[in-house]
Design a protein around this nucleic acid. Sequence first.
DNA 1: GCTTGACCTCAAGTTCGGTTGAGGTGGGAT
DNA 2: ATCCCACCTCAACCGAACTTGAGGTCAAGC
Lengths: 158, 158
Amino acid sequence: MPQSLNSTDQLSIGQVADRSGIAVSALHFYEREGLIFSSRNEGNQRRFNRDVLRRIAFIRASQRVGVPLANIKEALDELPLKRTPKEGDWAKVAKRWHEVLTAQIDYMERVRDDLWTCIGCGCLSFQRCRLVNPDDAMSAEGPGPRRLLPGTPRPEKH
Amino acid sequence: MPQSLNSTDQLSIGQVADRSGIAVSALHFYEREGLIFSSRNEGNQRRFNRDVLRRIAFIRASQRVGVPLANIKEALDELPLKRTPKEGDWAKVAKRWHEVLTAQIDYMERVRDDLWTCIGCGCLSFQRCRLVNPDDAMSAEGPGPRRLLPGTPRPEKH
DNA sequence: GCTTGACCTCAAGTTCGGTTGAGGTGGGAT
DNA sequence: ATCCCACCTCAACCGAACTTGAGGTCAAGC
């Protein structure tokens, strides 16, 4: 399969993998999870629209700052399905992310500074210090790894 | 077992769980992983030194900002084993964390702002944008969830 | 004397974010 | 004709960070 001469403007999965640096297996996974989409050619091979690269860039950037895939999917679900997203569509998504990240950054700064001063003052305890306290959104989260920006809580156990 | 009248200054696992908000099962797990320690009483029950609460506070605060347990353990391993850690011991640990968190905060700010401006300018692509590029430390990390502050890289596959 | 509650151990299950591998298709180059 | 390569599917596995459950001990309280 010659890599350059596919008549349409679509990309094979290998090309997407090369250009994005994401493993083919991960692209399969993202598609299964509904984060990216593709059509198929005559031979049942995936063909990706070029804008998938933007999606992937967004996915990876979001992961790097601790956002779980489920939340990334929610954000991407805001993009139009029928047509290729335009600047304005992305801008809305980006605006939301900007707020979320700012909140998390503020939180991290608080932890960083509290850790510093609380250890200095010797109050690193549960009674007095706001560092780790009942507003801890991560307590009571069930199994699985703890992560930042947990987004929507897990369904209550019945 | 009366909760208040244990003659020594040690805490049962239930008391630690109550005071810290961490499940007993998680405390077992942390002990297995070497993040906390205990001695045993005559009846083989765990007895925790009071400073375990500080350790746990540190663990949870670190987790909330995305540090994996393995790295937290490394940090805690700097504390003296033989005696109860003092201010100065904790201060060293806190100083290191301060640097690490500051770096991560800077990184998050960059991502936040790049996401904002790159989406504005339409360059959210792999070719031109520093948002997601080969210096991406998380590419080629193998299975398991992606996390912040990955610390020491995984051993190379043979 | 029996139940209740807190504790113990050890094995197995769970979620997330993928990877690995087995087995199969289809096309281009030698 | 045969080889290789890129692609396909589906099932199983991995690591992190726990939880859940089965089965057992021990002391206190009714």
